[in-house]
Nucleic acid binder design. Sequence first.
DNA 1: CATGCTAGTTGACCCAAATCAATTTTGCAA
DNA 2: TTGCAAAATTGATTTGGGTCAACTAGCATG
Lengths: 265, 265
Amino acid sequence: MNGPDQLHAPILCSDCGIYQLCLPTGIGQADIELLDKIVKNRRIFKRGEYLYRLGHPFHSVYALRSGSVKTYVLMDDGRVQITGFHIAGELLGLNAVNTRVYSCEARALETTSVCEIPFDRLEELGQQVPSLQYQMLRVMSQEIAYNQELMLLLGKKNADERLATYLIGLSSRFAKRSYSSTEFNLSMSRSDIGNYLGMAEETVCRVLARFEQEGLISMQRRLVRLKDIEKLTAVAQGGGKAESPSPAVGKRPQSPVSSRNKQVG
Amino acid sequence: MNGPDQLHAPILCSDCGIYQLCLPTGIGQADIELLDKIVKNRRIFKRGEYLYRLGHPFHSVYALRSGSVKTYVLMDDGRVQITGFHIAGELLGLNAVNTRVYSCEARALETTSVCEIPFDRLEELGQQVPSLQYQMLRVMSQEIAYNQELMLLLGKKNADERLATYLIGLSSRFAKRSYSSTEFNLSMSRSDIGNYLGMAEETVCRVLARFEQEGLISMQRRLVRLKDIEKLTAVAQGGGKAESPSPAVGKRPQSPVSSRNKQVG
DNA sequence: CATGCTAGTTGACCCAAATCAATTTTGCAA
DNA sequence: TTGCAAAATTGATTTGGGTCAACTAGCATG
């Protein structure tokens, strides 16, 4: 998605520049070597190729080394909801543990390098390395938290808030991986962005264009530059509408966000 | 929410009528007794009371014995998105494993009986009982799958489809617990339903009223009866609009579901 | 360097559902 | 039993963003 393409994947986990992302704290050198033994293989997926598909039997989880991937769920009639965009250091596929069948699809957005890890081997290893077990719980727990944020966005935010939230979110994910947090390349299309955020791609274009007019960002094609992160954050939180600073007497507050959907009961 | 109120909670997991729901297959009698030792206490929450609140330190997970609970996430300005309604046999709180802080709130919808289980004890026990570890992964994996379905609903379904999906979903959850799948009591308000489904409570009322007119359901207050599950299922899938069976020549298809948001790229 | 082809953009129009408003019904506490 | 607040319903009106349509910009390919 961003940063240098690392297409020459190293052979060992211990040589891998991102293993501290997919397997943070608490795993010793010896354990890393164990892990290295079970990683099935490093594979390259090209744009549009599937890491896994809906309904296929669950056998492996995938650690992203470089590139980016979208995951999405499907309806019978062909409608699609993208549930996430994933970049280097993220682990995919654990959501199939329960049913033993993938409940969504994962597709590369660009050339993407991954480690495929057979789940049953990973589970065995987990029994010897408690911190690895814990790590799996953490990864899933984090995914749940992300998904909850997305539900909040889909259920309660307007178009401006959605886009602003999206940009801010990308920015901080890049920052975490020490890429630029103010200038980056989108690997997904406008249409994918719209699908993910629950809006039409035309609306994505229009809102981005307005953000540019207002000096919040600049865009050319898929390159974004965030020019006013502070204001963008405010918009994401719903503070972009400039609440009338001194509400005239007799004038109903007419808050930009209705009291509906706020906590009451 | 439904079924007999089981307010006299038994003292032991092995006596508990629902332990096979919160801890399915693969746990032996001896392990159950171990588990029983670490369950901190059985508690009763009354309507409106919190099991846990946003930002509070994570210490326990909660197994629901009876009653029902809503979980929801919050925005700074007070907006709320309900992320789930939970009934007997479900396990809450595992989504705080990663940050060690609850990322959402859980609040009883009615008088609700729960087992509180300290997470660190549960984790220790998990190292002795691998199937318990696996069970935790399963529970979280299932929650992710549920959440993905909800994202699909929030992002891509219209009001009719949302309500139909909701009713069908409740029905099959009750069936799994061998309650009636065609007649049940809602423990949540219209407003909560609307919030959960991403629509105004007025719309919930209107759509329910129309479903009743059309003979799909009957409702009085919070008691629902599903009268035509088959058709309801069709509506949930987007098939309620009766695609014109023989499209006249020259008449644009005007499909009830646009080709947008379907899989293309 | 035409020729597509895909992705992105912009304008005009429309509609599903939100909002606003007015009642009605219900559950409970005094 | 009465009184009230919360919950639910129903109607009128508005609107944010979807849909349709036309067009442009990049970019690959023969």
